[in-house]
């Protein structure tokens, strides 16, 4: 009876863990929004995530079954029968070294392409290098954004005609864009959860980040690296416009920030 109780105890928890995990997407505890990433690289990251998840679930089930079987048989072994006096088995050790080793190596090498695509210039889409839309500077506790004047390129140093906004990053949708990420004070992290993009903003470094919003819309932008007491409230918006609307918006922004109003009245 005691034996059955403990067996069930150790059985119920992995079963429960699996059930809860299986229902996670339905209960909306999984990936944010509808669970589908809003960027192409996000889809690839999700794919890798699910691949690892499947492998891990299989290993989890396998090891838990082995453990439970071992517990069940070992606790029910008749008294007069001695425990199996074995110091191990060389062949078994080899098997359970080589097979997991191969699987792990596969997992490791399978990741590299997506990582390269995200961080290494030669592997990322060409547009991700040329289409530089803004410089994002993180600061306690807000995001300051600098755009180039419409028709001009973003320079490393602020130029006359540059436009600024706070906590709103406007980009064109449906095309890779690149930003330059900086920090004005302490370390922050640029995190777009629905696009699966994250990059630390490090004081003293200018780090290029590229991403693509598949569809026009508003996406959350938060800080993911502890930056002080207000870390939790560093929320902002990524606003993806359809391309023409984006150009109009930039022109409007320029007008707002540079037009003194005289020209129109004349």
């Amino acid at each position: 009876m005691k034996r059955l109780c403990w067996f069930l105890f150790f059985l119920i928890w992995p079963v429960l863990a699996l059930i809860v995990s299986a229902f996670t997407p339905r209960w909306n505890w999984g990936f944010p929004g509808d669970g589908v990433s809003d960027s192409p690289i996000g889809a690839e990251i999700d794919h890798l995530f699910y691949l690892i998840l499947i492998i891990c679930v299989i290993v989890f089930i396998g090891t838990q079954i082995a453990l439970l079987y071992a517990i069940w048989t070992a606790s029910g072994r008749p008294k007069e029968k001695r425990a199996w006096h074995s110091h191990g088995n060389h062949k078994l050790e080899l098997i359970w070294t080589i097979i997991p080793g191969a699987i792990l190596l596969f997992i490791a090498f399978y990741q590299m392409r997506v990582w390269a695509e995200f961080r290494i210039d030669s592997a990322s889409p060409e547009k991700a290098q040329t289409n530089i839309v803004a410089e994002v500077s993180a600061r306690q506790f807000e995001w300051r954004i600098r755009y180039p004047e419409p028709g001009k390129k973003l320079e490393k140093k602020p130029q006359p005609g540059d436009m600024y906004s706070v906590n709103e990053l406007h980009i064109p949708a449906g095309t890779p864009v690149r930003i330059y990420l900086r920090s004005l004070d302490v370390q922050h992290s640029f995190f777009l959860p629905t696009l699966r993009v994250k990059q630390d903003a490090v004081p003293g470094l200018v780090i290029p980040v590229w991403f693509e919003a598949k569809k026009p819309g508003e996406y959350p932008l938060v800080c993911a690296e502890l930056c002080g007491w207000g870390h939790y409230k560093m929320g902002a918006k990524l606003i993806a416009h359809p391309p023409e609307e984006y150009e109009q918006y930039m022109k409007k922004l320029h007008q707002e920030q540079y037009d003194d109003g005289y020209a129109k009245k004349k």
Binding site: R82, W84, G101, L104, A108
Partner: peptide, 23 residues
């Protein structure tokens, strides 16, 4: 990722230790 390998070996050996014992 490779550090998971020695960890896995240990888990298998613990299960092997329970296997056929008098728990």
């Amino acid at each position: 990722i490779m550090i998971a390998l020695p960890s896995a070996i240990k888990v298998f050996n613990w299960i092997g230790t329970i296997w056929g014992g008098h728990l």
